[in-house]
């Protein structure tokens, strides 16, 4: 564990909490893609199948459980409790376009053709593109609430910090995981356009609005 990895985990946790608090306090999930949230929940389930077979540390286990509970909580709030506020007309990205390639790729390119390993690989590939329905929704409506922007910024920061963590680990520990690193780079690149808008607009107090 190094400071970049810890910061990445914290950024991820902050993103999840921002989203839950936004939905809970405003009693609305307007502007949030339920499809992205489903993909994140699927990602966590597929990746943390090793929760009971691969013990790493208390920290690791607790964080896994928190991520799982929070992602299920978010999906529950969106599709059950505050269903009436869910903006499904704008949440039209086709999930099979992301899930099927992720399944196919995880069966072809993995570290080991074993059940847990393939599920882990699938979760890595799926997570790298899971934000696309959300970004698609923002581009479709042409804007995002500030709080949604903060959520996306925290979520993008998480993977960017993980990249720094991987560089650090490569040089300090000789550790590297090519699958996680390449997928992580793809994932971070997807946020670049958003990062630019966030820094040039949201941080200056303006609403995130896409150029017409």
């Amino acid at each position: 564990m190094n400071v970049f990895r810890l910061s990445g985990d914290v950024a991820h946790l902050i993103a999840i909490i921002i989203l839950l608090l936004k939905i809970w306090t405003s009693r609305s999930c307007a502007g949030i893609s339920g499809k992205s949230q489903i993909l994140f929940a699927v990602t966590f389930v597929a990746r943390y199948l090793d929760l009971f077979t691969n013990y790493v540390s208390i920290y690791n286990s607790v964080m896994k459980i928190v991520y799982l509970l929070a992602s299920f909580g978010t999906v529950y709030l969106m599709y059950m409790k505050f269903k009436a506020t869910y903006d499904h007309n704008h949440d039209t990205f086709r999930l099979e376009f992301l899930i099927l390639p992720a399944i196919a790729l995880s069966l072809i390119i993995n570290h080991d053709f074993a059940v847990i390993e393939v599920f882990w690989t699938f979760s890595i590939y799926l997570e790298s593109v899971a934000i696309l329905p959300q970004l698609f929704m923002v581009s479709k409506t042409g804007e995002a609430e500030s709080i949604t922007s903060h959520y996306l910024f925290a979520l993008g920061s998480y993977r960017a910090l993980y990249i720094v963590n991987w560089i650090y680990r490569y040089y300090m520990e000789g550790f590297y995981d090519m699958i996680a690193t390449l997928a992580g780079i793809v994932q971070t690149v997807l946020y670049c356009d958003f990062f630019y808008l966030y820094i040039t607009k949201v941080l200056k107090g303006k609403k995130l609005q896409l150029p017409a």
Binding site: R5, D9, H12, D50, N54, V56, S57, N60, M63, K64, Y67, H111, D112, E117, W120, Y162, N165, F175, Y176, D177, A180
Partner: peptide
């Protein structure tokens, strides 16, 4: 099996 990186990250 030996070349599978350890899964200690989240």
């Amino acid at each position: 099996e030996g070349d599978v990186p350890a899964k200690d990250e989240l």
